[in-house]
Design a protein around this nucleic acid. Sequence first.
DNA 1: CTCCTTTATACTCTAGTTGAGTATATGCCA
DNA 2: TGGCATATACTCAACTAGAGTATAAAGGAG
Lengths: 280, 280
Amino acid sequence: MTIRSGDALPSGPFELEHRSLQAGLREWVGDQTGHPVGYLEQLYTFADRDRDHMEAQAETDSRTISISYLGLVREQAAPGAGKPGWHGWYEYFPWEDQRRGRPGGLVAVTDALRLWAGAEPSRREHRNRRVDFAFGLDGAAWNEDLALQRYELMYEARLVTEAGAFPGFATGRPMFADHRRILATAIARLRAKIKYRPVVFELMPEKFTLLQLQRTVEALAGLTLHKPNFRRLIDQQELIEETGEMTSETGGRPAKLFRYRSAVLEERALAGSKLPLARN
Amino acid sequence: MTIRSGDALPSGPFELEHRSLQAGLREWVGDQTGHPVGYLEQLYTFADRDRDHMEAQAETDSRTISISYLGLVREQAAPGAGKPGWHGWYEYFPWEDQRRGRPGGLVAVTDALRLWAGAEPSRREHRNRRVDFAFGLDGAAWNEDLALQRYELMYEARLVTEAGAFPGFATGRPMFADHRRILATAIARLRAKIKYRPVVFELMPEKFTLLQLQRTVEALAGLTLHKPNFRRLIDQQELIEETGEMTSETGGRPAKLFRYRSAVLEERALAGSKLPLARN
DNA sequence: CTCCTTTATACTCTAGTTGAGTATATGCCA
DNA sequence: TGGCATATACTCAACTAGAGTATAAAGGAG
């Protein structure tokens, strides 16, 4: 959910009248997008002088401290006022979407990373190992959790425009200041989290089919899942229950509608929940 | 590693001459404890008006933002200057040490929590479920990761002195301001982390035996582990290698000395590593 | 000098989990 | 009516994790 036609994330200064950081954040996001946020989770606090190459700041006698958050909303709950600019995050990170196999553009990226690695002979081996690991090359498997590491490698190798790359290179849409880095942090955090906390349900409408749930998880992880195993894991954990209703809007055979069991979710929100996304 | 004889954590203001938050933190900790920090990881940023009941603050026109970190050091690496006040964290959280079974004092705590739960009939059931879950009662298993939830429950029920409990009640040693909450956050984070990142080695000396490693993990988790399984998991992952040396300082049969394989650690620091600490 | 204690190390067994594949059911639409 | 798309149920083999057992090698007590 963006502002400025997808160029920036909602944000604003923390002010004295705000009761808490979260309260202030909710207010800013609500004002800027016309959409109330549900789930909120603190991500990271930045205060480095060289944050996004803002050298000018070093000359003033003040510092900006940015506290970033991950927020989740239900698209369905949209009120009338204001319209949030919805943008799929793969617009900014095309290489992160592996649902239809490796995206074509990835080869150009990893080739460029190889060049960067070779540019400094002393660090070549180490850099190549980092690239292999982050991008699942040379025997390593693709790990969707490493979204931030991948972005940081590309930043270090100056393959993204905000790090000084010449525009036009197929490395996704840039954002204002360091917002794309914050987004990468959020993606990595959310991808890791869905594997052990039932946060997906924060994104689902009240009633949904099992395939809708699976598609949501897949969209977050950027991977496709094995359908039978997904279903087995979901109903083993008793996170959801049948509503009794069916829907035939899904195309083929009508599907049962489910809802999440809020009592269980409350506990599992603290404890665990599993998804068939584990490595080998 | 504390200051003020164990009453407070090292801390200090973030100033203009600090290159970054981490740099500033390293400087303050070094100055206050005479001990350089190794591993650092950001925990949480607090800025709430009612942080630790500091009502006075609401009247001034400024707010304090506290950014907390988890740091790890090797005790062995101590330089001469200054002496850090080492305190075991179970001094502050005696109920968290389950290595010799349930600590005796826990019964008094959970009894008091039951009373608190019953005090409000409408929330009784919900509160009791939270207590069961956090403290592993009524069929639930003890989960060492829930250190923060346990502290927060006790805080809510006013069983800790910083929340207004009468002193003398056996609920561990309090700390300055909200430092004990920060410590609880750090414990929870570290306990969760050792299960999938090889951070334990940040605490180990260069050479160590397998039992020493196990004892360290046990101290962190507050649990005892199955020795054969621990060893199996450790050498399956090839995180460590034999030095070729032996030590007979451990009591019985002399043990092999191991060191960690830094090359592997570097990768695993990003990827995974396992410990036999899983739930059932 | 022998037995006992303590620690180290190796091996086995079983239950449960997980990844993958296969088969059948039920609606819509041409 | 047959094909297509989706939904749902079942099977199987490989692997993992928890638990237990057995043996080796030191020091110390008698």
